[in-house]
Each structure stands twice: as C-alpha cells, then as structure tokens.
Write a protein that binds this DNA or RNA. Structure first.
Length: 459
DNA sequence: GCATGATCATGC
DNA sequence: GCATGATCATGC
C-alpha cells in the first residue's frame, strides 16, 4: 500500500485539497489519454491522487479507517439547478451470500458504511463528447448514513433480500426500492448469474444509491439547501415509507376538497393547482414546492394530482419536460436521460373524483414507478423510433389551423407519445445541427394508460 | 368522445 | 424568461 491514514480526519483533509482541481492536473500517469475504461474518473483519482491499485475487494478502499472512495458527476439542469448525473453504483450483489446475512453484515454495509465522495462537474466539449480534461472536483465529502436515510436503506435491503429468498432475483427492479437500489451491472445488460432459490438465472446487479438520493446529496453538500422533513426515524421503525404516506392521507379519503380544507384550517386556493396545494398541506407543507420535502427529493418522488369526472373518465395525459433532440440523436437508449428519468422517478398519484355537484372528493393515493418490463420494451422501442425519425427526417403537414407530424402517437405502443409543449410554436422551435427545425415536444404518458394505473381508486 | 395540437398559469 | 404542470381547442 502506498500510504495509510491514521485517522479519518487525515484522509478527509487530504481529499479536500483536491477541491477546485481539474482532472487533467490530477492525472499524473496520463491515464486520460491512455485508458478507455468506464469509470475513468474514479480510476484516475485512485491511482494518481491516492496512489493505489484499483481493486474490488470486499473491504473498503481505505480499510484502516473503514472508508470507501467514490466519485460522481454533476450536471446543471436547464433551470440552473444542480443534480447528480447518475446513480452511484456500489458493489455487486452476490445472491448466494446476501440472503444469509442481516443488514449489519451485508456486503453493502461492510464496504460502504462510510463513503468519501468526490463530486465533479461533468462537462462536454462542443461536439457533445465528454470533456474529461476539464472535469473539475468541486467538493469532497465524507458521507455517513443516519436517521431516516438509514431506516429507509434498511427497508430497501430487506426488500431486495426478500426477493432473493422467494426465488425472484430475476424479478428485482431498481424501482422496487427507495434509496438503496439494485441496478443492473455487467458487460452487457444481458449478464446473468445464478440465484439460490430458483433455477432461473437473474440479471447481474449491484447495490446503488439511486439518482434522486444522489441529487439530494448534491443539493445538501454543494448548495447547502435547507429541506423540510415530514417523517422521523422513529416513525419509520415500524412502518415503511409507503405505509406512512397512506397514514397521512387516510383520514381524508372520501372527503370533499372543501371539507379537507376545513379540517386543516386551510384556505382553498382558486387557482388550478388548488388540489396540489391541498395535498401538500395534508403532508404538513405550505406551498407546492414539494421537492423541498426532504423525503420527496431523496426518493425522487413526483406528485401528480389526478382528477376524474363523476363518470370516471379522465381527459388528460401526463407530461414531462421537453425532449432534447440532439441528445436522442447522440445517446443510445442505455445512456439516455429518458431511461434514467423513467427508472428513477416514483410517482405519487393523488386521485380525486368529482361528486354529483362537481366537488372533487379524495379517493386515494398510489405510489408507482415504471415497471422494468415496460421500460425495456415499450419505452425503449419508443425511444428508438423517435431516434429513427430524427435521423430520417421529421415531417409535418397542415391540417386546418393545426399541423400533424410523424412522431409516435398514443397508438404507437399504448404507453406514451410525443406531443408539443411550449409557450407557443415559434418560441419552442429547435434547430438541429443538421438544419432540421422542429417545434418543442415533450414526453407524455397516455391518459388511458394513467387511467388504468389508478382504476382501482375510481368508481 | 377521443386523440393530438396548442397554449395558458404559476413559481422561481 | 423559462421550466413545469395543467388544460383548452381543434379535427376526425
């Protein structure tokens, strides 16, 4: 070993000296030019900054002080906010071994209880390629898991373990859990390995810290954002996060919006987001900035109030941000931000249905994430279809006052479609590098698809 | 009545 | 000014 650290403080203060440095200056061994590994940044920090060999030992990188080294990229969103570029991938899950141990003895906890995280800015050059030389270390942090985070992680671990114990390792999906994920890992998405209680081989997976959680860490450590919490570790000891959410809403199910507002001493707004405002009030939050709720930010939960008419019809589809055509042209599905978004978001549907007089009545809530089967099939095919259209040429033609185009519609796969979105057509217009001009479009879930998801809550 | 195009309203 | 959520308007 090239060095040893007597105390964690020594290690952390040495790490802190890297803040502000560019990768090209840290890279003493010219690995930037000569290696082509994924995880280039981690390799360079380990080899050049700390001077040790890459390993995949079960103990932490700095075993003497029990600290594991990790590097992770940051990106700036269009709205100026910082977020984590990706989930943080940890050690591979050995299905055979993991079921035999409790959380405290798990491979995750033994290796990752204390993480020394190097956050760096992930920048691209003008051709859209990663500009490794100018990746900059902006922050180094010793992160430990405590409080509600730790309680949720323990629940996540038990979830993953339960799947393996019931011979369903091949059914594990990253969306099943909240902070600690089990993401696929391998040379190809098809890397398989055996599981103890079933003959069916399962995808190889690694423990990961999900993107929403990483983004929350970014905002906490780099932006110093203050957040509001609505749970406590004590509340989570006997209940899952999901059960807790149901507990909050249960007293109001079957009540009209005006009655709920009365109960809560809440002034019902007249604006169209009044049900969203009311819903956050049920959780004890004023206003709609739900991403300021710590748990919602960490679990990447997005709120969606759904209004059904008294006959149970639901008019509206569900939109996301506008898609980035250039990114779709450049990135394959596996690397796309659409995939990252779809697998990391959990939806909290809050369903209201109008009564005879047209008053919205709370019918119930549902937490939902995109199942892996739909992600791997319908949404992947949809992405590739959009890519194909962008490559072969976007077309549109006038129909009355409107225009029609050749992007996939709701009939394409019954799940999602592209649809215009923006203040107006001209303002939303995007010019691609090949000269195509295309009005802004967003990703939408079909209304009928969403309706089926919450059908059980509607009369 | 539904699917899809078009744009509004709000908050930061 | 822009991103995001929400909803209106048009065409079949």
């Amino acid at each position: 070993m090239a060095f040893e650290y007597e105390t964690i403080d020594d290690l952390v203060s040495y790490a802190r000296e890297a803040e502000g440095e560019y990768l090209k200056d840290i890279d003493k061994q010219n690995m930037l030019e000569n290696t082509n590994v994924k995880g280039k940044v981690g390799t360079i920090i380990e080899a050049s900054y700390f001077g040790y060999e890459i390993n995949s030992k079960p103990e932490p990188d700095f075993a003497d002080v029990g600290v594991e080294l990790k590097t992770t990229g940051l990106k700036k969103l269009k709205n100026g906010q910082l977020s984590a570029k990706e989930r943080l991938v940890l050690n591979i899950i050995n299905y055979e071994d993991e079921v035999k141990v409790d959380f405290e003895d798990s491979s995750f906890w033994k290796k990752n209880a204390k993480l020394l995280i190097f956050f760096y800015t992930y920048t691209r050059d003008k051709d859209g390629k990663p500009d490794y030389r100018h990746f900059q270390i902006v922050k180094t942090v010793l992160h430990e898991f405590t409080g509600t985070d730790l309680e949720i992680i323990k629940q996540d671990f038990e979830d993953i373990k339960a799947k393996i114990l019931s011979g369903e390792a091949h059914m594990i999906s990253e969306g099943d859990t909240n902070i600690l994920g089990a993401c696929t890992k391998g040379a190809t998405a098809k890397s398989l390995r055996m599981q103890p209680y079933s003959e069916t081989p399962a995808k190889q997976r690694a423990f990961s810290l999900k993107q929403g959680y990483m983004t929350a860490l970014v905002r906490k450590y780099i932006k110093d954002t203050k957040m509001i919490s609505f749970t406590s570790p004590e509340e989570l000891e006997g209940k899952t996060f999901e059960e807790l959410l149901h507990d909050y809403f249960r007293p109001y199910i079957g009540k009209r919006d005006i009655d709920i507002a009365d109960d809560l001493n809440h002034q019902l707004s007249r604006s169209k987001n009044k049900l969203a405002l009311l819903s956050s009030r049920i959780l004890g939050i004023q206003g709609t900035s739900l991403n300021r709720i710590e748990e919602f930010s960490k679990l990447n939960i997005k709120f969606k109030t759904i209004r059904a008419t008294k006959t149970g019809t639901m008019q509206e589809s569900m939109s996301f941000g506008n898609v980035d055509y250039e990114e779709i042209l450049q990135e394959d599905w596996e690397e796309s931000s659409l995939k990252m978004e779809m697998e990391s978001i959990k939806w909290l549907f809050i369903v209201f249905q109008e009564d005879e007089e047209g008053n919205p009545v709370l019918k119930g809530i549902k937490l939902w994430n995109v199942p892996e089967s739909i992600l791997d099939d319908e949404i992947r095919n949809f992405y590739n279809e959009v890519k194909r259209i962008l490559q072969e040429g976007f077309e549109e033609w006038p129909v009355g006052k409107q225009r029609r185009n050749n992007f996939p519609k709701s009939g394409f796969n019954g799940v999602c479609h592209l649809r215009t979105k923006g203040a107006n057509r001209e303002k939303s217009m995007v010019t691609l590098s090949d000269g195509q001009r295309i009005p802004g479009h967003a990703f939408w879930f079909n209304s009928r698809f969403v309706k089926n998801l919450v059908q059980e809550l509607i009369d």
